[in-house]
Simulated assay, not measured.
Amino acid sequence: MTMTSTTSPATSPLADPRLARGMAAQMTLRDRAIAEGARPIGWKVGFSTPAALAKLGTKAPLVGFMLDRKVLAAGATVALSRFSGAPVAEPEIVVEIGTDLPGGGDEAAARAAIVALGPAIELVDVTPSDDPEAILAGDIYHRHVVLGPRASRPGGVTADLVSRVLRNATTVATPADVTANTGGLAMLVRHVADTVAALGLTLRAGDLIIAGSITAPLALTAEDRMLVHALDPIGEVSVRFA
């Protein structure tokens, strides 16, 4: 895949050679899956907290891709025994993009491109690493995503949203600010647009972005049976485990 950028090499989100190599390997996976019939549905971000950035030696969140074949129906049952590494669940916000968003713009343009939000749960298959190139090459551990209902939210306003997470019969603590652990949604959307532009792609109308875990990632065990993520007042989504 030819990698081009609308930004200068010094300001490109892939200026770090580790990120450039990791994203090139990731795009090879994506291109192969699309050639086999998979349909791209959008992108994901991860490792956005200050602690994660310091651990990896990066300056911005990592970006991965999502395909239709990785989407699970709400309430689906997942066999954790099929994970090759450590199964982890992440309650997230899914952002729907309403207009094409080229790279090189500002956060105001990114904010204007957001049309809807909703709850999501991402399931990741983690083999721990401190190497961002290896993490990117494996699509940031992405295994599945469960998408809940989305509601119109022009500009991606989150001030009134409340995240509630129920693991089995136990409530998981969530921050009052649903973007406290991820960073603002406009910033994340802007970063995704700039990253895919550096790959010669464009963030398109209809693309979905899962914005990173609202809580600390939840390591799953054989005792886990169900996870519910409600994003009030929009709605909720759940997944079961076997």
Rank of each mutant, 00 (worst) to 15 (best):
T170G: 03
F83K: 12
I121D: 00
I41E: 00
P9E: 06
V192G: 08
G148E: 12
T158W: 02
G138I: 11
S238A: 14
D100M: 02
D125G: 03
P17H: 00
R39S: 00
A86H: 08
I41H: 02
V146P: 03
A86W: 00
V178Q: 10
H191G: 06
G105P: 01
A110E: 06
L231S: 11
P17Y: 01
V115D: 14
P50I: 03
V88K: 10
A222M: 11
I97P: 14
A112G: 10
A76I: 03
A89V: 07
L136S: 10
P149K: 13
P132G: 04
S163W: 03
T11L: 05
S12W: 08
R21Q: 06
Q26M: 07
V45F: 00
S213P: 07
M23W: 11
R204P: 00
S48R: 04
L185K: 11
L53N: 08
L29E: 06
V145S: 09
L19M: 07
V88W: 05
S152V: 14
V146E: 04
I210R: 05
V189M: 02
S5I: 09
R82K: 15
A134D: 15
T127N: 05
F65N: 02
T2G: 10
P154I: 08
A205L: 06
T215G: 10
V192W: 06
A113K: 09
Y141A: 15
M27P: 00
D68Y: 11
T202I: 13
S84P: 00
K44D: 01
P13W: 15
A89W: 08
